[in-house]
C-alpha cells in the first residue's frame, strides 16, 4: 500500500450521504492520525476510534453507580491500611529513609489501583463485548477497523483510570501524604501505567476462550497486588526473591509513585518509564493484530 492510496482511502471513507447529511459531510480523519495511516494498512484503521469512547461514555452514564464505586475501593484500602494497620507499625523504610506507614502505602495503592482498574476494564469488558455481545462484529461492518477498536477501548480505559487516579491523588493531598511537587507528575505516570496494563490486558483477553480463563487474570493480578512491595519494603524478601519482584511491572509502578510523592526522584525513574512504554507498545500491537485476525476471518 503506497502512501498516496492510503490517504485517498482516508479522504473517501465517509458514507455516501445524499440527501441525508449534506450539511455535515462525514468527518475526515484528523491530520494527527497521518502517521498511523502510513504504518497501518487502511482496512484496519478509519481514524474514528473516538466514537468508541463516545459509546463507552453513553454506557457508563447509564451505570454511573458502578463507575463511581470504583473510586472507593482504593480509598477503603487507604483508610484501613494507612490508619488502621498503620498504627501497628511505627515507621517503614521508604525511598528517603524511615517514613510513616500511611505515606509509604498510599503511592503503592495509587499504582495498584491504576493497574487493577485498567486490567479488569480491559479484559472483562473486551471479552464480554467481543465474545458475547458481539459489539465489535457490528462495528466492523462499518468503515471502522480493528485498530479503531483497540485504540478506542484503550483510550476509554485511560480516561476512566485517570479520573480514579486523580481523585485518589487529591485524597492523598488532603491527608497530607504528599511531600513533593514532583507529585504533579503522578497523574500522567498513572495514565502511562494504566495504558501499559490495559494494553497487556486487551492482548490477553483476545486469547481467552471462556469466563473460566479470568481466573488466570486473577492469578496474575492478585500476586502482583500483594507482593510487589505494596504493603512492605523490598528488604523483607530474601535476596533471590528481591530480584524476581524487581522484574514485575507493578514493582516499577510503585517505585515510580513512591519516588514522585516523596520527592526522591533519580535517573532510575526514567528506566521505569521506559519499562511501561515498551509494555504498552507490545500490548497495543498484539491486541490489534489478534482482534483483526479473530474478527476478520
Amino acid at each position: 500500500m503506497t502512501r498516496e492510496s492510503s490517504t485517498q482511502a482516508s479522504r473517501n471513507d465517509g458514507p455516501d450521504t445524499d440527501g441525508l447529511d449534506t450539511a455535515n459531510p462525514p468527518a475526515a480523519p484528523k491530520s494527527s492520525n497521518g502517521l498511523l495511516f502510513r504504518i497501518i494498512p487502511p482496512g484496519l484503521y478509519a481514524g474514528r476510534s473516538h466514537v468508541l469512547v463516545e459509546r463507552s461514555y453513553l454506557v457508563s452514564k447509564r451505570a454511573w453507580m458502578s463507575v463511581i464505586s470504583g473510586f472507593f475501593e482504593p480509598l477503603f484500602f487507604l483508610l484501613s491500611l494507612g490508619f488502621g494497620f498503620g498504627q501497628l507499625v511505627t515507621t517503614v523504610e521508604g525511598p528517603g529513609g524511615p517514613m510513616p506507614y500511611a505515606a509509604f502505602v498510599a503511592p503503592a495503592l495509587l499504582a495498584a489501583s491504576a493497574m487493577n482498574g485498567a486490567v479488569f476494564e480491559a479484559t472483562f469488558n473486551l471479552f464480554f463485548k467481543f465474545k458475547y455481545a458481539k459489539v465489535y462484529d457490528a462495528v466492523l461492518a462499518t468503515p471502522m477497523g480493528p485498530v479503531d477498536i483497540a485504540l478506542g477501548e484503550a483510550a476509554w480505559c485511560l480516561i476512566r483510570g485517570g479520573l480514579y487516579s486523580g481523585g485518589f491523588i487529591v485524597v492523598m493531598l488532603g491527608f497530607g501524604l504528599i511531600s513533593s511537587p514532583w507529585a504533579l507528575l503522578a497523574l500522567p505516570v498513572c495514565l502511562l501505567v494504566a495504558l501499559a496494563f490495559a494494553a497487556a490486558g486487551m492482548a490477553a483477553a483476545t486469547f481467552m476462550r471462556s469466563w473460566h480463563d479470568f481466573d488466570l487474570v486473577q492469578l496474575a493480578v492478585m500476586p502482583l497486588f500483594l507482593f510487589s512491595t505494596t504493603f512492605y519494603p523490598l528488604s523483607v524478601y530474601p535476596g533471590w526473591l528481591q530480584t524476581v519482584v524487581q522484574c514485575t511491572p507493578l514493582y516499577h509502578a510503585i517505585e515510580l509513585m513512591r519516588a514522585l510523592t516523596t520527592g526522591y526522584v533519580g535517573w532510575g525513574a526514567l528506566g521505569h518509564v521506559v519499562y511501561f512504554v515498551v509494555m504498552a507498545a507490545i500490548g497495543v500491537v498484539v491486541a490489534a493484530r489478534r482482534l483483526g485476525k479473530l474478527l476478520l476471518t
Binding site: 447529511d21 478509519a46 466514537v51 455481545a133 457490528a138
Partner: peptide, 21 residues
Amino acid sequence: NLDTELTVRQNLQVYGRYFGL
C-alpha cells in the same frame, strides 16, 4: 448483534457515528 448496553435510540445514533455522521 445490537449493543445491549445501549437503548434503542442510542443504538442507532452510535452506529451512525461509526460512519462518521
